[in-house]
């Protein structure tokens, strides 16, 4: 059964009125195509994310990420500079906690989860660089 009201759809214009429009086609955009990501860039982000990739993986991830970024070219091409960004769905402000101590975890329970422990501390391999 096909219901007549579904075709063609109405688009609500900003003014509140409705006008007939072509049906949207999610996921396709004819605008500028993002520059496909290079293997060097993928290798760089892998390093930043502390991931090691074999050459085969590097090639495969590069083509997969390029595909996703190409898809995202539709938003990259949008001219929406005047639109403010939304980081949170709801604009809550000043969610604060009183400065009252709460119980801590039991140290033995905490350290029992650690891969390596020494002198009640988390033991780690040597660090080559200083903290930034």
């Amino acid at each position: 059964m096909r219901v007549a009201y579904l075709d063609p759809p109405l688009e609500r214009s900003p003014g509140g009125g409705c006008r007939r429009v072509d049906r949207g086609r999610p996921g396709r955009y004819d605008g500028r195509v993002a520059q496909p990501i290079s293997e060097d860039e993928v290798a760089h982000v892998a390093r930043l994310a502390r991931l090691e990739l074999s050459q085969a993986e590097l090639e495969q991830y590069t083509s997969q990420l390029a595909q996703v970024l190409e898809h995202a070219a539709d938003i990259e091409a949008l001219e929406i500079e005047g639109v403010p960004p939304t980081a949170h769905p709801f604009p809550l402000v000043n969610v604060l906690r009183e400065d009252v101590p709460r119980p801590c975890l039991d140290r033995d329970e905490v350290l029992a989860q650690a891969p390596d422990v020494d002198q009640d501390r988390f033991r780690i391999p040597r660090i080559l660089g200083e903290a930034p």
């Binding site: 906690r97 101590p101 905490v110 350290l111």
Partner: peptide, 30 residues
């Protein structure tokens, strides 16, 4: 809510939040 104290025994003033355990969330101290 872990105590802010200097010089305590190591890893005693810790909880899921300040240990960054999965699932923990921060709430700002007034």
């Amino acid at each position: 809510g872990c105590p802010n104290v200097f010089g305590d025994e190591p890893n005693t003033n810790v909880c899921p939040v300040c240990l960054g355990l999965p699932g923990s969330l921060p709430v700002l101290n007034r």
